[in-house]
């Protein structure tokens, strides 16, 4: 894998996918069994952790209770024997960025949870360097606190112009932070790219499943030739298929996965040439405030739809008609999960 300099890169995957180990390899806290790591175009595989010149925020960052906030933040710099004036400047800069300047003379037990987290983030960025590494620093925090810290992290990265490498298993957190995203699953990088590319043209069914909230709907399908054109047959509907450019759909691709994002299951969408429609029963409307996740029963299958508050009126009946624009449907091989086509003739 290669991470570009100056970007906010997120390594994203479910718990246990290997992202923490990957990060610890980068920082030098783990030794690779095989392979090499380059930073700033130099081989650092054998370079000890302390000499790699990266800022690191671990997942659980205990602050030293007997140190004041100032001393906690300056600790990594004191450790490498930095000059007093240099330390002072770095601490003040970090504290200003995270809006904790008034807290510098306090002790950790006088701080709220969010303030402690900010102090820990500040400690992570005091080292002046071009690469900062964050190991899932917001996990376990309540979501309002995360909302604020996410803004702080984005601002920090933009202000520093540095490379941020950040791991998380939280979909929304990954999507809101990432410029470049690496999808990790079962110890392997499935694919990587810009957030929009990964979201709108996932190369693998796992990417579509993992990267998206609410979760994408996945149906089983079967490809077949009908009157000379390629058709996908599912339990709910049949529709024409446009194979990927250069993709020859072979016999072994007969079994497929059909992925549909919840926002493409549109209540009230009129039947048109390029839409599929289905009769659905509403089981539950989850109210997010500005929008709703709608749990549907369509022909015995449980599927999700998604509407914004403005369209709430479309959900007033229990039985509704769902329209699906065909071109939004993505088709993946059931063998290796790769994308092989989309809906639409």
């Amino acid at each position: 894998m290669k991470i570009d300099s100056g970007v906010f890169a997120v390594i994203f995957g479910p718990p246990g996918c290997g992202k923490s180990v990957l990060l610890r390899l980068l920082t030098g806290l783990e030794t690779p069994t095989e392979g090499k790591i380059f930073m700033r175009e130099e081989d650092v595989t054998g370079v000890p952790s302390g000499e790699r010149s990266i800022g690191y925020v671990p997942q659980s960052f205990a602050l030293y209770p007997h140190f004041k906030v100032y001393e906690n933040i300056s600790y990594p710099l004191r450790l490498i024997g930095a000059k007093k004036a240099e330390i002072d400047e770095a601490v003040k800069r970090a504290a200003h960025m995270l809006r904790i300047t008034p807290l510098l003379e306090k002790y950790p037990d006088q701080l709220s949870g969010g303030e402690k987290q900010r102090v820990a983030l500040a400690r992570g960025i005091t080292k002046k360097t071009g690469i900062y590494v964050f190991d899932d620093p917001l996990s376990g925090l309540d979501f309002k606190l995360r909302e604020q810290l996410i803004d702080d992290l984005k601002e920090m990265q933009e202000a520093l112009g540095a490379t941020f490498i950040y791991t998380t298993s939280d979909t929304l957190e990954a999507m809101i932070l990432a410029e470049q995203i690496f999808i990790l699953d079962g110890g392997r990088i499935l694919e990587h790219g810009s957030l929009e590319d990964m979201y709108y043209t996932p190369g693998n069914i796992r990417t579509m499943e993992l990267l998206g909230f609410p979760e994408a709907n996945v149906l089983n399908g079967e490809l077949l030739q009908r009157d000379g054109s390629l058709i996908c047959k599912t339990k709910l509907f049949d529709f024409p298929v446009k194979p990927e450019a250069g993709m020859i759909v072979k016999e072994e691709h007969r079994e497929v996965f059909v992925g549909i994002r919840p926002q493409d299951m549109k209540p009230g969408l009129k039947r048109q040439k390029d839409t599929l429609s289905a009769e659905a029963r509403i089981i539950l409307k989850e109210d997010l405030g500005g929008e709703f996740i709608v749990h549907l029963d369509i022909n015995g299958l449980r599927l999700l739809s998604f509407v914004r508050q403005d369209d709430l009126y479309l959900l007033s009946d229990e039985e509704i008609t769902i329209g699906i624009p065909m071109e939004e449907i993505v088709i993946f091989s059931s063998e290796d999960g790769t994308r092989i086509g989309r809906g639409g003739g």
Binding site: L172, I176, L177, A178, E196, Q263, L288, E291, I293, R308
Partner: peptide, 12 residues
């Protein structure tokens, strides 16, 4: 000045 994808594919 900043753009990300949010719940339901909305842009924030």
């Amino acid at each position: 000045i900043r753009k990300s994808i949010q719940v339901g594919g909305q842009y924030l």
